[in-house]
Design a protein around this nucleic acid. Structure first.
Lengths: 315, 315
DNA sequence: CTAATTTATGAAATGCATTTCAAGTCAAGA
DNA sequence: TCTTGACTTGAAATGCATTTCATAAATTAG
């Protein structure tokens, strides 16, 4: 492979001059610039990006720690991140964690080893104490709120949104409400339960089913909820796919929606549009975009992304 | 930042020895190894990955050119790629192209600049003549078949699968069949039309609607198809989401499935399971896994991934 | 007790481009 | 004419770790 030295020799100039041509430096004699350009062309030369990154100390690459990628919510997030990265000429490396603490630390080490300029944490398994020390080596942005000053956040106020959603159902006259979540141990599940308790009083465990993520889960879960002695009149699903499953099951049982059963989903996914499912839109794409902006700017701001309830025909 | 020189000085050894410790070289005196390790620990030292990549000439990173990422098919592909990369300790950088020729070339340039060891092309806008020269600089793997020997392929035999699917519909007694596609100019659309013509004779343009990708598209498109003077009795949708939309529209019109209208989807997506939609499973996750394996092995093999029709209740 | 290995370590070369420092030319302003 | 600022260029330092080459000591084999 030809390198900058070869080019310099062949063009009869110093490497500095070649580098200047490469970087569009202002003050270069026209003839030298041209002869350098000619040699570059002839030799089909491309600068080695690793050398550049090494000397510049930055890679214009951001790593995104993502528990799963075949998940509509994380997908929206990633989408927003990719949009913003593209806009700013940054690259995105996907770091699948599957919520493994070891993997997460491994990825943070890569930040330390200068492979990424920053890391966006979509969701995490480690506690902040483990993560924070790495903020010395690049920007770390979380998609979940934390008040640690070392960490930038692009987040939505889940607790408020859950309160609002439950209040919305209550105002529509629902007394017996059930809900689904994805992971029992997750932060959002905790907030969900907290919000539920605040609006409807102490949660009876049978009105909460966890481990839901897709349409089929919703379909199955709906069956369970509807078999309850005192069956819920409304269900808050953790995603419109799940909501769609509930919807389909309810329909299959000749239930009328929203009269017999109200359903509200989350994240305003395509499936909900066609089915007319009301949803809590947390604007995850915007959360992703903002997270990426913060990472690029190396900002440690805390930016709250507004959510809103999209009313359709299922509540 | 401390570097390997600092460590060497502090431990009273040469950089070679430090490097050997770092790389678990066999022949090092126990005491020296320990003192090096101690200094590394004390200084909280992590080697600079850019320097390593530069000197080793490889990054263990693969770029994936992906037109869109919020697309179920590409998502499955990416998922397979990520799985295999994780398994082999490779990183994946997502390169969103939006089918822009310039972007694609820009990404291929990054291969040349040694940023990636290989590139996987999920789908492309450029012709092969533009792409092939870059295969000198790393492995290029396509998720679409090509007989160019420079390019590795992990692909499914779309034409055969389309033939099979249409034959399947014909054998069920369907004479008037419609279908949807995503992009008019895409390769798969061309193959689809070819297969249609082969099974059902010259395609009447009104039986083909393009630009479909989600449930709503399906919903809308179903309306159009069903208004046709001679309405189709079966529809092949380019994805189960689209099929789901068609299904829902048909149901809303009190049509019985599969009696009044048969629907077959594609890619065996979650939504189809719950709705009982038959589908042509191209095993895109496997295609992705295989593509990643080829890229890692720098192999230019052509690997065909088998498809199969999953019969459920919609045909 | 040699000859041949194995063990152990450092100096220097290598991979590659950027950037600072120093220095030179030339033209314009005082 | 002298100074100053705009241009122009190259040598050398810098960023950092790996690897080859050379060498020396300690074993093992014959």
């Amino acid at each position: 492979m030809t390198n900058i030295n070869d080019i310099a020799k062949m063009a009869g100039v110093s490497v500095s001059t070649v580098s200047r041509v490469l970087n569009n430096y202002k003050y270069i004699a026209k003839d030298k610039r041209e002869s350098v350009l000619k040699v570059i062309q002839e030799m089909n030369y491309t600068p080695n990006k690793n050398a550049i990154d090494l000397v510049r100390g930055e890679t214009r690459t951001i790593g995104v720690i993502l528990p799963y990628n075949n998940n509509p919510a994380f997908d929206q997030l990633l989408n927003g991140i990719l949009n913003k990265a593209l806009e700013n000429d940054f690259s995105i490396t996907v770091l699948p964690s599957n919520y493994s603490k070891e993997k997460e630390v491994e990825y943070l080490q890569k930040l330390k080893s200068k492979l990424y300029d920053g890391i966006i944490i979509a969701s995490r398994a480690n506690d902040w104490e483990t993560i924070i020390p790495y903020s010395d080596y690049g920007s770390i942005v979380s998609c979940e709120y934390t008040n640690h000053k070392e960490i930038g956040c692009s987040y939505m106020d889940r607790y408020s949104s859950y309160l609002d959603a439950f209040r919305f159902l209550k105002n529509k006259g629902h007394q017996v409400v059930a809900f689904t979540t994805a992971r029992l141990e997750s932060n959002s599940t905790k907030q969900m339960i907290g919000a539920y308790n605040e609006i409807f009083g102490e949660l009876q465990p049978e009105y909460h089913i966890t481990g839901c993520s897709c349409l089929e889960d919703g379909y199955e879960v709906a069956g369970q909820f509807l078999l309850l002695p005192e069956r819920p009149t409304a269900i808050y699903a953790n995603g419109d796919e799940v909501a769609g499953g509930i919807y389909l099951y309810a329909k299959s049982q000749q239930l009328k929606i929203p009269t017999d059963l109200a359903i509200i989903g989350q994240e305003n996914q395509p499936i909900g549009v066609g089915m007319g499912i009301s949803t809590v839109d947390h604007q995850l794409m915007k959360v992703g975009e903002q997270a990426c902006s913060l990472a690029i700017k190396k900002s440690r701001e805390k930016v709250k992304i507004p959510y809103h309830i999209v009313e359709r025909d299922s509540v």
